[in-house]
């Protein structure tokens, strides 16, 4: 999995490309931990390149959103690919996470 960190409108963005599975999840977790250690109130996952997400991948997303919410922050999920949208739907994530059609609206 390719993980790219950037900042858009002063909001940290992690762009993920490829398969977010049990092998890739620890690396994403590590990036998220480093990013959250800087104390942001918001962050966004750019999901436009995610081909697949397993249970381990979904746990990383939920844990990140929970951590930010606990400190009064927000975590956005932008540009869900069709397979990811389907998994989010089945898992109820569409109902509880902050979903955006694109990166522009997620970082507005």
């Amino acid at each position: 999995m390719e993980i790219t960190a950037s900042v858009v409108n002063e909001i940290p963005v992690l762009t993920l490309r490829g398969r977010l599975d049990g092998l890739a999840a620890p690396a994403v977790e590590e990036k998220v931990a480093a990013l959250l250690a800087t104390g942001p109130q918001r962050m966004v996952f750019d999901c436009s390149g995610i081909e697949y997400a397993s249970s381990a991948g979904l746990r990383v997303f939920l844990a990140t959103a929970k951590k930010l919410k606990t400190v009064g922050g927000r975590c956005g999920f932008a540009s869900l690919t069709p397979p990811l949208r389907e998994i989010f739907g089945v898992s109820g994530f569409l109902d509880v996470l902050e979903i955006h059609d694109n990166l522009e609206s997620a970082t507005a």
Binding site: P26, S55, A56
Partner: peptide
């Protein structure tokens, strides 16, 4: 799964 031994879909 939490111990990182298995993954599921």
């Amino acid at each position: 799964a939490i111990a990182g031994k298995i993954d599921t879909d």
